[in-house]
Nucleic acid binder design. Sequence first.
DNA 1: AAACAAAATTCCACACAATGAACCTTCAGG
DNA 2: CCTGAAGGTTCATTGTGTGGAATTTTGTTT
Lengths: 259, 259
Amino acid sequence: MHDIKERESSKMRSLERALHVLAVLEESAAAIGVTDLGRASKLSKATVLRIVSVLEKYGYAEKIQGRYRLGAAVLPLAHAYVLGNELTRVALPVLQELAQTTEETASLFVRLGFKRVLVERIEGLRPLRFVLPIGERLPLHVGAGKVLAAAMPEAELHRMLDELGEMHLVSGEPLARQALLSELERVRRQGYAVSPGERMMGIVAVAAPVTDADGATVAAVSLAGAKDRMTPEKIEWVSIAVRDAARMISERYGGARGG
Amino acid sequence: MHDIKERESSKMRSLERALHVLAVLEESAAAIGVTDLGRASKLSKATVLRIVSVLEKYGYAEKIQGRYRLGAAVLPLAHAYVLGNELTRVALPVLQELAQTTEETASLFVRLGFKRVLVERIEGLRPLRFVLPIGERLPLHVGAGKVLAAAMPEAELHRMLDELGEMHLVSGEPLARQALLSELERVRRQGYAVSPGERMMGIVAVAAPVTDADGATVAAVSLAGAKDRMTPEKIEWVSIAVRDAARMISERYGGARGG
DNA sequence: AAACAAAATTCCACACAATGAACCTTCAGG
DNA sequence: CCTGAAGGTTCATTGTGTGGAATTTTGTTT
């Protein structure tokens, strides 16, 4: 995500390098050796080894037969994040209500760099997937991501689009930059986004922004269900329910400042 | 968890300090200012500020009105851990099977220092709790923890008991060190642990160890249910089912070395 | 609204922690 | 038994992390 541009004067070089190694471990599906870690993070073997040794000591990395992978200590961090976070706390009952009345799956996303992260999900009648996808990094230019992209500063948005290059929907259909920009404009105007099968085939999602006291977008509420259940009429009233839910979270979040 | 003993020659002091700050953020329920962070981690304000600035840049910390809390970037780490980990992958279908046949909640724990961490859970008929507790840090001297404690090296176990001091069950009943040691010995002999309401009132848990190819305990499978459903007869056959599940995970885990 | 208090943030010269090239060890394959 | 590849170790050098003090910001009291 963050390239380590050694030129730039970065305070705490060693820490940034360590976090970079952690990011490589996150991306790497399988366990990875120090030589490969060094290659991937552009650091010397010795440096990488020192970093993973410390990470291992604290449980953030695990050594298995000379190879390294993420360690179990990352789980308590995520647990503490979800429990301690004001946003997830106030959103939980609202998402429950939303999932129950619509009988579909309700989710909460926050933006992280040029991606969004699923921070909370309540399944409706039939789960979308079995394994829990909380923490998954998803793109901003499709689905509920559009709500978050619509709130990005113009310049940052264009930097992201430059990085992304050619965009496609899951159907394979290309997504022109101009088409996305107009769509984002429409999302801003109408206050919600509808995404028919943009990221997952056969899944229709409706999403609306959660804002803080200053009106800045801090998260997106999304409701997703199978295409055949999401008729135009249902999408109509669901879009209202989603906006209501997002507004309710916004109010309670803004109201309890300093919690 | 890890005291920062500055005396000891620790390579990568700055990284260890940063991880220590991260641990403080994890423990702190509410957002916390740099002064308090400095107090809690015994570091100067300036140092703490530099550390949290970098953590914030990478999304591991969030600044909200001058106070800091964990950031959303910890969630993708946990997600990657669960997806990429061989153990959770092979355990998933076994836990599903176990939860289905027993109609109770099946869990998988790994040891992390002197605690255990819940890494996977499949709910039975009635969930034990609503909010997902994956990543929770729990003690080793009660419940499924006994299976992990039973596998600790003698010296390490005693160091832990020294740190713990007086132990109590959730009922308030004190737990003598000698009583725990004999119980651990029994767990080793019979290959599983039964914990009637040790950690949570009204919940009975049965647990068995998962071992790697060398026979070392790497995790614990646990099955927990309400006391009134867990009759002695059910505990009897459930303890067999749990051991079978643990053995199956052990075999598949050992079998796929290097995955 | 002014004055104060407390906390966040910036600055800087020094000390020593982090660095990486070179070296050692282990192990798999031929 | 040799060879190559990868994990791990060592140590002199240097530039990075450090913390006290100065400065700005925030928020609380009068």
